[in-house]
C-alpha cells in the first residue's frame, strides 16, 4: 500500500540540534552490537539457536525452504525404477526459456508397458528461469521443482543435466507432489 511521507515535518528545537537523535541512533546500533557479540564470540560452543545473529553459515548450514519454493526442476523416478515421464513434450512447449530438450522413444505396445518414454531428457540450468511452468504443464506428475538452488559449475557445458542426473526417487518428492495436487488440481486431475 502506498503511503505518503511528509517531508516537511516541523521539528522541535531539541530535535533540530540532531545530537540527541544521533545518540539515539547510536544506542540502537550499539545495542545490536553488544547483544550480538555475546551471542557470537562463543559461536563454536553454542548452537545456532543461542546466537542472536540469524545469518546462516551457508555451506555448512542450509536453509529450510517452504514447500512452495521453486528450486531446480527434477524428474520423478517411480517405484518401478522408471521415470514417470511419457515424453509428451508439454513441458518443452511450456518452457518460456526453451531449456528442456526431450527425445522421445516408443515401445512396441505390449501389455503392461508404457508406450512412450524419454530416450533423452536434458535441462540446461544455465538457461532455466525456475518459473515452474513445466511442473504445471505436466499431466503425468513427472517433473517437479525441488528445493535445491545451488547449481554452480565452472563450465557452462556441465550445467546441462541429462536424465541420470535429473532423476530423483518419487518418495523424496512426496510433499511437493501433494502441494502440486492442491495447487494445480483444478486443471490436471
Amino acid at each position: 500500500m502506498a503511503y505518503y511521507v511528509d517531508r516537511n515535518v516541523k521539528m522541535t528545537w531539541w530535535e533540530r540540534t540532531y545530537i540527541p537523535e544521533i545518540l539515539r541512533g547510536m544506542m540502537i546500533t550499539s545495542r545490536h552490537f553488544f547483544r550480538n557479540i555475546f551471542g557470537f564470540v562463543p559461536f563454536f560452543l553454542g548452537k545456532k539457536k543461542d546466537r542472536e545473529i540469524f545469518t546462516v553459515y551457508y555451506p555448512e548450514e542450509t536453509m529450510q525452504f517452504p514447500i512452495a519454493y521453486r528450486g531446480r526442476p527434477v524428474l520423478a523416478l517411480n517405484e518401478d525404477n522408471r521415470p514417470n515421464c511419457v515424453a509428451c513434450g508439454l513441458c518443452e512447449i511450456a518452457c518460456p526459456a526453451y531449456c528442456i530438450d526431450i527425445i522421445p522413444g516408443e515401445n512396441s505396445g505390449k501389455q503392461n508397458e508404457v508406450e512412450r518414454y524419454p530416450v533423452k531428457f536434458t535441462i540446461d540450468y544455465a538457461v532455466c528461469i525456475f518459473c515452474g511452468f513445466c511442473e504445471e504443464a505436466c499431466p503425468e506428475e513427472a517433473i517437479f521443482m525441488s528445493d535445491q538452488y545451488d547449481i554452480t559449475m565452472l563450465d557452462r557445458k556441465k550445467m546441462k543435466y541429462d536424465m541420470e542426473q535429473l532423476l530423483v526417487p518419487v518418495s523424496e518428492l512426496k510433499d511437493r507432489m501433494d502441494f502440486c495436487r492442491k495447487m494445480y488440481g483444478k486443471w490436471n486431475y
Binding site: T29, H32, F33, N36, I37, F40, E52, I53, F54, T55
Partner: peptide, 9 residues
Amino acid sequence: QSAMMQDRV
C-alpha cells in the same frame, strides 16, 4: 563490527 551491528556474521 559493522556485521554485528547489522546482525550479520
